[in-house]
Design a protein around this nucleic acid. Structure first.
Lengths: 238, 238
DNA sequence: CATTGTAAGTATACAGCGTATACATGTCAA
DNA sequence: TTGACATGTATACGCTGTATACTTACAATG
């Protein structure tokens, strides 16, 4: 059970003088907490209503529908993403900084993977990140089209990197370890002559730990590609 | 409504002499068709049962549960992925061949994006692809751990590339164009002084067409990264 | 101060989902 | 012929999003 900020309002025994006062802010916040703790599938109107000691339909006074709720959760998650912190140095370093900033958000909000891969029109926070990234890439010499593709590419890959490394299994720590054990048993137990490489790699497949190295490796790989691409384009335009 | 191969069995007016004969094969196949045509959310036991003119619970005689069904669909989708076609040349070209082979599958099966990003223990077809890829990377000089990370990295990015490029909007062609128009209107209509780069890139963001160039760009970016990584490792071990 | 409009929470309902359990039936082996 | 087994049926439970209609409480206004 996720802790509710307004516990006295969630008791159900509301006194008449101070009736329940929901707010979009509180709803979205609690929804995000639930999503981060138990996966976004655990977020439902009935669940939220119950936590607030309120009728499910009450939620609809503050949230248009579930899509709207999920959009708002995404936005809420990204408030802690501060694009202004990206200092103007080497553009590749700026990109790296953006990548790590996104990682920081995603580590705090494991539900980010699901939320960010939803198809939706972004609002404020997300737009700012988008704009900043595009600006960096454009100033680095990429054409608008390329800059956009690279941004999408980076975003997607970073989400994936963090997700597989840290928050892939959205449940609690224990469930994650269980899954790791199952992976190890499965891949390690394959017929060695048929799947030699998989058997060999089994421990690595099962290991969801050592995420810093994992992430650094992935980021290096990512940036190496972008750098090479930039060089190729630059030599083409000359 | 997705066409059912055994239409005479789906009429509901079954004759007593030839009672309904479901089969795992038929169920999984139809489920995949539905998923490709209308998105994997459109696949439900009740929907499948109805298409076969049968009770929902009948499905359970051939499929353990929904997870099992989705696993089977993934497997079914990958039968057309022939890893043996990858000829032994330059390892980077082999990887490129794998990437394009996966793309071909994903173009035929738009639901692949959702299916492949499920957490599950793979079976035959998927294992073979995994093993082949790992082998190529190991022979290229990567350590087991690195080879695994690179594989995951490539897989994820290819799925994303195809998905955003071609089959991102899982619905019909029309819905996809609608979404493109909406994107163009949205990004093009942003305040220019606040979001100059986004406004500039609006046409590119909205364009879900010209997918060949899109995909090629992405693949080049991907391989440039892997190549650079390989070079870096090789120089480190020397 | 009384009235009235509106915002916010309630009550009920519907159609859909996955699936547990218990039962019927059609087919094939002994 | 009988009995076992595989397969499809019937019913039910708890969950989901959300449409519609009703009630209540407060805030502003005549």
């Amino acid at each position: 059970m996720v802790h509710n900020d307004n516990d006295q309002k969630a008791t159900g025994t509301r006194n008449r003088t101070s009736p329940i006062r929901l707010s979009r802010e509180a709803i979205v916040g609690l929804a995000l907490n639930i999503a981060d703790a138990e996966g976004v599938d655990a977020v439902s109107f009935r669940r939220l209503a119950h936590e607030f000691g309120v009728t499910p339909m009450a939620i609809y006074r503050h949230v248009r529908n579930k899509d709207d709720l999920l959009d708002a959760m995404t936005e809420h998650m990204l408030v802690s993403f501060d694009t202004s912190a990206v200092i103007e140095t080497d553009w590749l370093e700026q990109v790296r900084e953006l990548i790590y900033a996104l990682r920081r958000v995603l580590l705090v909000h494991p539900s980010g993977r699901s939320l960010l891969s939803r198809r939706s029109l972004p609002s404020k926070n997300r737009l700012d990140i988008f704009e900043t990234s595009l600006g960096i890439l454009r100033k680095a010499g990429f054409e608008p089209r390329e800059a956009y593709l690279i941004f999408e590419y980076l975003l997607n890959q970073v989400v994936s990197l963090v997700a597989t490394g840290d928050g892939y299994v959205q449940g609690a720590e224990e469930e994650r370890r269980e899954w790791g054990a199952k992976l190890l048993e499965f891949y390690g137990g394959l017929p060695q002559q048929e799947y030699p490489w998989l058997v060999e790699a089994a421990p690595n497949i099962a290991a969801c730990v050592d995420t810093d190295r994992h992430f650094q490796f992935g980021t290096d790989l990512l940036l190496a590609g972008v750098k090479a691409m930039a060089a190729s384009i630059r030599s083409k335009t000359l």
